[in-house]
Amino acid sequence: MLHVTNGDHAADAIRAAGAPGPVLPWRDVLHDGPVPAGLPLAELSRIRAEFIASRGWASPEDAERSFRERDDALAAARDEDEVVLWFEHDLYDQLQLVQVLDEAARLPVRLTLINPAQYLGPSAPEQLRALFHLRAPVTPAQTALARAAWEAFRAPDPRGIQSLLETDTSALQHLGSALRRHLQQFPWTTDGLSRTERQALRSLADGPGSFAEAFAANQARESAIFLGDSSFLGVLADLGADPDPLVTWDDGAPVRALAPGVTIASVADHRLTLTDNGRAVLEGRAAWAPRTDRWLGGVHLRAGESGWRWNDDTGQIEAGTGRTGESASAASA
Rank of each mutant, 00 (worst) to 15 (best):
Q199V: 08
R291D: 03
E64F: 13
A241S: 13
H133E: 15
T112K: 02
D93R: 00
A200D: 13
T167F: 03
R279N: 02
S223W: 01
E126S: 14
I52G: 01
E43H: 08
I264W: 00
E151V: 07
P254R: 13
R27F: 05
Q173C: 09
G261L: 14
L164D: 08
L95P: 00
R221N: 09
E103R: 13
R309F: 03
P137T: 04
P122E: 07
G160K: 05
V235H: 04
G38F: 04
A104M: 02
A224N: 13
S194F: 02
A58C: 03
V4Q: 03
A58S: 14
R78C: 05
S332W: 08
P140W: 00
E283S: 08
A257L: 05
P140I: 00
A149L: 14
D238T: 10
L41K: 07
A53L: 09
H133L: 13
A75S: 11
T292V: 15
D269Q: 15
R198G: 10
Q99L: 13
V262R: 14
G252T: 10
V84G: 02
A152K: 04
A17H: 08
G228D: 03
R46S: 06
E197G: 11
G240E: 00
A149S: 15
F211C: 05
A259N: 13
D206Q: 13
A241W: 06
A58Q: 14
L44W: 10
V109E: 03
A220Q: 09
A77F: 01
A53V: 12
A286M: 12
E151A: 15
L172F: 10
R202F: 10
A63L: 03
P156G: 07
G297T: 09
E326G: 05
A149I: 11
Y92N: 05
S66D: 09
D293L: 09
D62N: 10
L204R: 01
A77N: 01
I14G: 07
E222Q: 15
H270Y: 05
I264H: 01
W188A: 12
L95C: 03
H300P: 01
T314F: 00
A303Y: 04
L85R: 01
A259W: 11
N115M: 09
E64L: 14
R70P: 07
L175Y: 06
Q185M: 06
D72H: 08
V83F: 09
E69M: 10
W57R: 14
G160L: 12
E166L: 04
E61K: 12
P60R: 02
L172K: 11
T167A: 09
L2H: 06
A217Q: 12
M1C: 09
Q173T: 08
V281D: 05
D238K: 09
P34V: 06
N218F: 07
G234W: 08
A155N: 09
L128H: 03
A224H: 15
S231D: 10
R294D: 10
W150N: 14
F186C: 03
R55T: 15
G192D: 04
T169A: 12
V84A: 12
F186Y: 11
F215S: 04
A75L: 11
Y92L: 07
E126K: 05
P254T: 06
E166F: 00
A268Q: 13
L24R: 06
W150R: 11
A319Q: 14
T112A: 11
S329W: 01
L30A: 04
S230K: 11
A130E: 15
A328G: 02
Q142E: 15
L111R: 00
R65F: 00
S45D: 14
P187A: 05
